[in-house]
């Protein structure tokens, strides 16, 4: 039963084998796929818009396609249309989902479950079916108009094929995601923090602006940046529900690529979209990087 505290007489045994980076092998395939079919084409098409074939057959730097885009009234109108739609939809998404998220956080009634199920329901509806449903519902002579007229409200103007068409469609589409992120942020606020604010006499509005909104700042940032990217790059909803002139960048790029058959101009349009979205992309990457850094520290 010898027990000694000094163990230095023992020669240290052989070095511990370090873990070899087999992990790199495991992730090689998806990384290769992402690099060769996402990052590479994006960079190539951006590069391709300024390294252009000259009339004499040689290649050289040219910004002609950009000059065309920014001097073409139709292109600029489409860009403005896209910005307007994106901003309006984003504001409406927050305006609709923030009250729902707050309600879900603080209400425990059966009604809350009903509200939650309905608000998240669009997640299970594919885009093509949403589009079809909205056309049949709010299109001219659709169910909504019929219902309104049945209760004596006439003069319904259908948003279908107007700038509001894509706004409504994208609002439908992006609602569940926005709500999920906001509820996740909201559930992280301890009830005691809000009760304490109430205790010191803060009004509900005060609590909203001084406690809730600052606490869900990161969720709002993620929602805003991702929604901006998602809405700005939309093609399908505007194509199906929106007007044709001016149109959003999505359908515009699509038409330039497949109907006008001008891939160079389409790539230029895509590059301009990339550039305009890079700020939102950066904000998103920064917020997830910060969150992952926190996780690593933990």
């Amino acid at each position: 039963m010898a027990d000694t505290l000094q163990g230095s007489t023992v020669t240290p045994s052989k070095a511990v084998p370090k873990g070899r980076p087999y992990g790199l092998l495991f992730i090689a395939l998806p990384v290769a796929l992402i690099v060769s079919f996402l990052f590479f084409p994006a960079l190539k098409s951006i590069f391709g818009t300024i390294w252009v074939k000259q009339p004499d057959g040689s290649y050289g730097v040219s910004i002609a396609t950009y000059q065309f885009f920014f001097s073409d009234a139709y292109s600029l109108a489409n860009l403005a249309q896209t910005l307007w739609t994106t901003v309006v939809t984003m504001v409406m998404l927050i305006a609709v989902n923030l009250p729902i998220a707050i309600y879900l956080r603080f209400s425990k009634s059966k009604l809350a479950i009903f509200v939650q199920v309905l608000a998240l329901f669009p997640m299970f509806v594919p885009g093509i079916i949403i589009v079809y449903a909205l056309i049949r519902y709010m299109g001219p002579n659709g169910l909504l108009q019929t219902l309104l007229e049945a209760v004596g409200i006439f003069g319904f103007q259908s948003p279908y094929l107007t700038p509001w068409g894509p706004v409504i469609g994208m609002l439908w589409d992006a609602m569940p995601f926005t709500l999920l992120v906001l509820t996740a942020g909201m559930s992280a606020i301890p009830t005691s923090a809000i009760e304490a604010a109430e205790d010191v006499g803060a009004s509900p509005m005060r609590i909203l602006f001084s406690i809730i909104l600052p606490q869900i700042k990161n969720s709002l940032l993620v929602v805003t940046s991702l929604n901006f990217l998602g809405l700005f790059g939309q093609a399908f909803m505007p194509f199906m529900l929106g007007p044709t002139s001016p149109e959003m960048m999505g359908p515009f790029m699509l038409r330039t690529f497949s109907s006008v058959r001008d891939p160079l101009q389409a790539a230029t349009q895509a590059t301009i979209v990339f550039a305009l979205c890079s700020l939102a992309g950066l904000a998103y990457v920064r917020s997830i990087a910060r969150r992952r850094a926190q996780e690593v520290v933990k």
């Binding site: 039963m1 027990d3 505290l5 230095s8």
Partner: peptide, 8 residues
């Protein structure tokens, strides 16, 4: 820290 112990 380096330690030694015997258990029967």
């Amino acid at each position: 820290s380096p330690l030694s112990l015997d258990i029967t």
